[in-house]
Write a protein that binds this DNA or RNA. Sequence first.
DNA 1: GGCGGGTGCGCAATCGATTGCGCACCCAGG
DNA 2: CCTGGGTGCGCAATCGATTGCGCACCCGCC
Lengths: 365, 365
Amino acid sequence: MAKVPIKPITLKELAAMLELSQSTVSRIINGEATAHRIAEETQQRVLHAAALNGYVANTMARGLRQKRTYTIGVIVPEISEGYSTTVISGIEDELLKDGYFYFVASHRHRDDLLEGYPRMMLARSVEGIIAVDSSMSEDLPVPVVSISGHDRRDGVINIELDHDQAAHLALAHLKSLGHKLIAFIKGQAFSSDTVLRWQAIVQAARDLQIEIDDRLVVQLQSPEPGPDPGQEMTRQLLQTNHPFTAIFAFNDVTAIGAISALREAGLRVPKDISVLGFDDIKAASMHHPPLTTIHQPLRSMGQVAASTLLSLIRNEIPHPQPEAITVYPKLVVRKSTGHTALHSEAAAQGAEEQSPATGKDEAAS
Amino acid sequence: MAKVPIKPITLKELAAMLELSQSTVSRIINGEATAHRIAEETQQRVLHAAALNGYVANTMARGLRQKRTYTIGVIVPEISEGYSTTVISGIEDELLKDGYFYFVASHRHRDDLLEGYPRMMLARSVEGIIAVDSSMSEDLPVPVVSISGHDRRDGVINIELDHDQAAHLALAHLKSLGHKLIAFIKGQAFSSDTVLRWQAIVQAARDLQIEIDDRLVVQLQSPEPGPDPGQEMTRQLLQTNHPFTAIFAFNDVTAIGAISALREAGLRVPKDISVLGFDDIKAASMHHPPLTTIHQPLRSMGQVAASTLLSLIRNEIPHPQPEAITVYPKLVVRKSTGHTALHSEAAAQGAEEQSPATGKDEAAS
DNA sequence: GGCGGGTGCGCAATCGATTGCGCACCCAGG
DNA sequence: CCTGGGTGCGCAATCGATTGCGCACCCGCC
């Protein structure tokens, strides 16, 4: 089992052993032998010696010359929460399959890092960059694919959710449960989804004839990840004393914070107030009650981003390039939403019973 | 906002602009100016121009010359859950500070990947590897730091939790709440913590004079991440009909699964059954009820691993190297544990009241 | 005027692989 | 004998940075 790891042999040494030039050996190793008319016998000789000596080309030397590294960079806001990491695991699926590796860097919304990381990655000759929920402020000399970044920049392909459909699914669901007084928690200003999502909600509300009461609309302020900002805004919502029967949160983590605040105020979810999340991260199904949420196919967004980026790198995407690739949401009904009790106690009671606790839900994607 | 599209500038170009030689510029950039008697004014000129043009040395070229890559590899079982990702974010903190980048690869417990990834990383000349909850089967020619991997291999430094203390904290907590019939859910066989943790539990139980009933000990089987395996084993535990008043789960996600199973069976947590988790991942504090758990300083374990690895790489750790670096657990009491009702209804009632819902807990580390 | 000692910086090789040209050799045909 | 066309492979530049030497210039002093 214990192979002795020896000092890697270089091309020069290998060539010397074989009494051939480096060029020849290099060509054979790289499978360009026939294109250069190298004798079959020589090829075998070289290949054999290479295998015997465990020759592996030095990645840096090769990278320096070819300007190829088979490496890409992934830039995320934050590494420890459900959104980015699910996307990353989708990215990984695709990349490693093709022999690419990736660097990860999280900028935590710090502008200097948002600027610096792409640069540092370029210094490492990444062949492309995937930005997750982060807007790139500069044009980069490599292909860029952006996930939920709505920058509309030349050459940058966006992977984005169909927000209109998402908003429609969400509001139609709440409406079907009888909700009319719906509170909204918008995302932080820095999140690239915030604006589009809100526009879509406004439009969907109009289509479904749901009225949006401005006093029931709040926006996350604290840049902190985790449920606290959502909890905080929900408290604020409760303090204003405007009645509502449902909350549509910007994401699942916010929804979880909202539920904490509601509980704190003695309100039951979903009996008194329904809470609808967004994203469908792992924690959504693990929560109690399991969150009804709008599922974003995060993992496959990562996969699509990665395979699109590879295509761009290989120049396989004809111009004009598409500006965006749309993916579609799904409504996942779990237990944090129910019929509103405000207009019909009976309906509310029914809602309680409508889905007996089976312990199973469609968490797995 | 729109700066120049950043095509990295090279040393040669920068030197040309400044009408200096590459050597001089290189020396200044690398802080070897004084050692080479470069005029203070020239230094300022160079530094300024470098900053202005966002010069960053090409890592490949530098690496080629210095035989350094400033890159390490991180191997994790799985990327999308709380344990690894928290560790990774700790790793990132330390590494990027020192100009290192890292590759991530997740093996999902597949042996071929567990073998293959280290190899591929070596081919990319990583200077070291951090293995998170994964055992490396071979000796590697670079420094390795392992987090919760109990392999005891020469040259591999382990970052490990003080399991004895953890077990003691956990059992003492349960005992203090009156629990005597404690069920245990052990980790999957592949998790490197499983054995040590269990040994520590057995020892702590002995010390605290708690009896472990073998019929109340189950082990996670399914390799699947997420709460399902925990839920499954808890159902099994319930079916055997041996009474118990508390469950000590292998980790928080398992605890969450356990709580689902208990609810499903009509049992309340913590009123009927207390559940104690392990790890203190983000989801633990977000759950309802918030999990009482044994906190592992995951983030700082990542930081320690990274800084230790960097020291190893720099050869700053004198021989004989330590075999392990121990970090310490903390008991975080939230709301999933309470006095057992089995022996004293009064005590149980008291427990209910003992911690009023404040909505605040010590989740943040 | 020549020499010694600072000062301040440059030349060119080097890391290991890739790659655009080009060259030597052989054989057959004219 | 010379030429033309294969065949089989090598020369040397190149990628971008680092680094061991070394050199030019200036000043003051004997």
